[in-house]
Amino acid sequence: MTFRDRTTNVDALRSWRGDVEADYIYTTGVAGERFFTELRDTGRILAAHCEACERTYLPPRMYCEKCLGPLSDWRPVRGPATVEAVTIASVDAHGNRPPEPEVWAVLRWRGIHGGLVHRLAVPPKQAKPGLKVHPVLRPAGSRVGNITDILYFAP
């Protein structure tokens, strides 16, 4: 069906290195502006509520994905987040091993559609689904309005 004997050593072939040069600027958007400004200034995590669909979105959006109506009812999430799934990352995207494995999790809040993926500050052995955690933020003066204003989640 095909040939088995072919070189797979690219250095032995005529080859060259190149790149696709492109740089970008991203805006946080209308909903993102409000979400991150609130996180920076008050430390609150806001969700957006659709009255018609009885759904509260985190991360908040300016529209409801179900009815495509506009969303204007913003409310902070309450109570601890629950860890739904975890991973313990031993290798980064470049194949390098960080000094300590990093724990990452899918986090959910009661009554909220969606949630966040973020870092967990617990030893790997304690990283289990079902754990209740709270966000730990940078000190008020040093927040910049970015998702990394949340340093991690901890019990």
Partner: peptide, 29 residues
Amino acid sequence: SVFGHIWDPILDRPLKPNLVWIFAMEMNR
């Protein structure tokens, strides 16, 4: 490294997510 650019630039990318994490969390779930 290409997969590093599939994430939402605002919410996800600052956390430097790795594609394998997401699969790992799905497998864990």
